[in-house]
Structure formats: C-alpha cells, structure tokens
C-alpha cells in the first residue's frame, strides 16, 4: 500500500500540492486526471520521491520513505523548544485552557503557523531520528519495487535495448546476468520487439520506446507501476499500442497509478479516478461516478472540455 499523508509541495513560492492525502491499495488502478498545473504529475513523482515533498510523509508497505514530518507527530511537537516556550508563555499569561486541552491548542497553533524551526533541541531531534530508525527505509530499495514510466520515455541512450532492461536488476544484484537476460528476452517477446534487443533507443519509434520503457520497469518485477502521462508525447497512431500494453498489465493485477489525459482509458481500466484541481484532490470515486455523475463544478467544467 502506498500511503500519502498530508503532502505539501512548494516550488519556491508556488504551492503545487496542498494537503494531499490518499492511499493506494494493492491491486488498485488509480487514474489521476485534472487540468494542467493541478499537481497530478508532482503527486505521482512524490510517491517515489523523484520530487521531495515540502511537508508530509509517504509510506510504502508500512515503511517511511520521506524524512519524518514533525507536524504529523504531536508527540514529537511536544518535545520541541517552540512548544515549551509557547506553553510557558500561555501559562504565565493565564489561560482558561488546562492540561491536555492547552497542549492540543498549542499543537494546533504550531501546525497552523508552521512555527517549528531548524533548532528545536536535542530531545526533539532524537525523537525524529527514532521515527526514521524504526520505520524509515532507503528510498532506492523502494524505488526498485516501484516501476516508473515517463512522458518522454527516458530510455538510457548509451545502452542498447537489452542493456536497458537488464541493467538495474543486475547492478542491484536482484538477478544474475543470465536470469536477467532470459527475463528481458521474454518481456521483449511479449511486446513483439525481440528483434530490437540489440539496437539503440534512438532508432526506435515513440511507441516502441514507450513499450520498452514499460518492460524496463517490469524487468524489476515491481509491485507498483507509476505512469506519468505515458502517451502524451506519442504520435496519435502509436497511442493505441501503449494503452493496449497497459491494459494487459492491469488485467494481470498490477497495482497502477496513472496520470493521463486518455479519458476513455480511465473509464475502462480505472478502479478509482482521482480529480485534482489547484493542488488538491477535489473529487474521487469509481469511474462511473466521476464520469457519469460528477459533483464538483470544476470537475464538470473539466469533463465538458475533454470529453
């Protein structure tokens, strides 16, 4: 399960994600749609930490891949210098709140005002470290189980197709070279491109590149697949072959998170459609509901433009 908790992402002053929380269960096919600039790609890229969230946490199968976010741990906020300073201030000023209620009020004040600074004392720092030591995992290990497909394919230009497929499994000691090659040839055969094993990516068509990018991710035997607008850079006649392969994957039971503008595909394959607007998930549900009976006015407007 991918568990996204209260994610914020700022690029400088631009707030791209605002308090996004969602969970993606094993076997789900989640399609994220929304106008451009709504933060859907950023959300996807935060799931494998290609983009580092400003606040919030991402958990994958019970393991924390981001640094712990103090704002999500009230028991850590309590240990901060800011908290203690505020508490003393409130108490000396006299307040009608007492005990637990006062604590909660101060925590809320700190959260709302983003008051935690860099230096909050040793106790606070150790508490954060403890969380990471208990639940944290190096992100590379999680990425190996999370395939990613990019809009611009990003095949390794200096490697031929076969090398593209076997590189990561072999370098990460997940498979021996022979195993990886057998596996790669089997995958290439599945997409009918086994005769391209020894050519370089620059000689392939867009559709071929993207299908090879998909099987490159599959060569790692991932548990999850993330797709970042996989058909947006393709010529129209090549979109079909890529979507076909993705459909096959979905039928095999792969857990998929897909950012796309292909509404027909979303309707057919998704188990859940997520509509993002202005950095928030404004509506989500099964495709029949999102496309059949949308509630949010922005979603209605969006659908009227794209359908």
């Amino acid at each position: 399960m991918i568990d996204v908790k209260n994610l914020y992402k700022n690029f400088g002053k631009v707030k791209v994600l605002k308090a996004v929380s969602t969970q993606i269960e094993k076997g789900e096919k989640v399609v994220i749609v929304g106008p451009s600039g709504s933060g859907k790609s950023t959300l996807l890229r935060c799931m494998n930490l290609l983009e580092e969230p400003t606040y919030g946490e991402v958990w994958v199968d019970g393991k924390l891949i981001t640094p712990p976010d103090p704002y999500l741990h009230p028991d850590i906020i309590v240990k901060s210098k800011t908290f203690n300073k505020l508490k003393k201030l409130r108490e000396s000023a006299g307040t009608y709140l007492e005990g637990e209620k006062l604590v909660q009020a101060i925590i809320k004040e700190i959260k709302d005002g983003d008051l935690l600074g860099k230096f909050e004392g040793r106790e606070y720092k150790n508490a954060l470290k403890d969380v990471y030591r208990t639940y944290g995992v190096p992100v590379d290990r999680v990425r190996a189980r999370m395939g990613m497909v990019f809009q611009h394919f990003n095949l390794f230009n200096n490697k031929n197709v076969l090398q593209n497929l076997i590189m990561a499994p072999v370098l990460l000691h997940l498979q021996t070279k022979e195993e990886a090659e057998d596996n790669a040839m089997r995958l290439l055969k599945r997409i009918g491109l086994q005769d391209k094993a020894y050519v370089y990516p620059s000689t392939l068509s867009g559709g071929q590149k993207q299908r090879i990018a998909i099987v490159r991710a599959l060569a790692m035997n991932p548990d999850y697949m993330l797709f970042d607008e996989p058909t947006s850079a393709l010529d129209p006649e090549m979109v079909g072959e890529v979507l076909e392969l993705m459909k096959e994957l979905a039928d095999d039971g792969m857990t998929m998170v897909i950012v796309t503008h292909e509404m027909g595909f979303a309707r057919e394959v998704a188990t859940r459609v997520m509509f993002m607007d202005d950095g928030r998930i404004t509506e989500e549900g099964p495709p029949e509901k999102i496309f059949g009976a949308p509630e949010n006015p922005r979603l209605k407007e969006f659908l009227s433009k794209v359908l």
Partner: peptide, 29 residues
Amino acid sequence: DKGQMEAGRAVGLSYGQTMLRIVIPQAIK
C-alpha cells in the same frame, strides 16, 4: 537530458551508479 538521471534513480540505482554508467558516458560523448 535530466530524464536520464530520473530514469536511473526511478529503477532503484543510486546517484553514483546512474552518474557513472548513464550520465557521464553520454556527457563524455
């Protein structure tokens, strides 16, 4: 292209591995 580094990282290779095997060979060229 920035995507080369991203693709390397996305399959689980480290920064150093991606740099050494993907980015630097292309840079030298």
